[in-house]
Amino acid sequence: MSKDGVLIRARGLVKRFGDFVAVDGIDVEVRAGEAFGFLGPNGAGKSSTMRMIGCVSPPSGGELQILGMDPRRDGPAIRARLGVCPQLDNLDPELTVRENLTTYARYFGIPRRTARERATELLEFVQLAERANSKVEPLSGGMKRRLTIARALVNEPDIVLLDEPTTGLDPQARHLVWERLFRLKQQGVTLVLTTHYMDEAEQLCDRLVVMDGGRIVAEGSPRELIERYSTREVVELRFGAEGQETFAGKLAGIGERTEVLPDRILLYVADGDAAVAEVHARALAPASVLVRRSSLEDVFLHLTGRTLVD
């Protein structure tokens, strides 16, 4: 770790696959103890970035320093201190839940006894203790994900990298994962995660960067980003089947900004109720009206003109 507590420092970091630029010169700093997020849609370059940080993918350009070391030279030493939960689970389905942890611990040179003890503790932590001796194959997606997270903790890492930790999980399984990650965060473990779910980013990240097309388009805490790029409230209007565009013109002047989506119109306003009153005053009768607080989804929409999850 460097003196200022920066664990990961990237400057103009680039990843190319042939002619294709997946990560296009990003600057990132992750400090000890924080939960840092990469928020962006599919193809934004999140996984490519995580794989470079995980020292399994050499940068094509720029600088990258992890735990004060150079991934090009010190890959094994850095990886020894990282915990990695990849986007797609790569557990061994034929081994038991416990064996997946104990064999993995050995890759880090952890003695067998210690490995067994840690496996027991970690299975308790991710609430899989009862399944310790069952095979991995029949486990649900959420259980596999939790096991992968436990595996990432087996070497007591300084940084835990989580690539889309809850993608593909049902809401209940997702909440269970969030709750565990939140516990880790409270214990001061440095988390770096990617997601294309704005609620995940809002709940877990102290600080995040919004990525799109291999670039960082904004950076800050969820609150800062919302304050900077959106209004306090949003009014969502749906105008039935007629198409939203016909109504968009009639809404001019209400609020700071209007976004017209295929299925609804978003009005960015300071006061939602006042805006709704104004809509009715203009004799417009939307099929449905919803007033809500601004979210990172709105930040993304404002910055890129697109929604995060399509």
Binding site: A80, Y104, Y107
Partner: peptide
């Protein structure tokens, strides 16, 4: 994909 899991370790 066990090789990829191993490659993420030291």
């Amino acid at each position: 994909k066990v090789y990829f899991a191993q490659a993420a370790s030291p």
